[in-house]
């Protein structure tokens, strides 16, 4: 899932996947703005076939944390 998640973020944020890491967040990526946040949620839900709660979405403040949330929902890592 690690590649798939990074790829997904890169695709939505229109950024090179090599510029992304587990600590990438709205604070250090200008492309990750409020519009992108919601597009990311929709894309993650569609790609990994999960439904994210408000609490889970709020927890996804970095790519690493998004991965943790998905792992917590037993999405194959």
């Amino acid at each position: 899932m690690s590649d798939a998640l990074i790829q997904l973020f890169a695709e939505i944020l229109q950024i090179d996947p090599t510029d992304l890491n587990e600590d990438s967040s709205p604070d250090n990526l200008k492309q990750w703005d409020s519009l992108a946040s919601m597009e990311l949620v929709a894309a993650i839900e569609e790609k990994f076939k999960v439904k994210l709660s408000t609490k889970e979405i709020m927890k996804m403040s970095t790519i690493g944390r998004a991965r943790k949330v998905l792992q917590g929902k037993s999405v194959a890592a």
């Binding site: 200008k30 703005d33 409020s34 519009l35 919601m38 949620v41 994210l52 408000t54 709020m58 403040s61």
Partner: peptide
């Protein structure tokens, strides 16, 4: 304007983004 709000009164702008805007947006898709 979106970039402006990441550069003006950043500590409160980010607070509003994280604790008000994000939870509000999750209520409907």
């Amino acid at each position: 304007p979106a970039v402006f709000w990441t550069r003006w009164h950043m500590s409160l702008s980010f607070w509003i983004r994280d604790y008000l805007y994000v939870p509000l947006t999750t209520l409907r898709r």
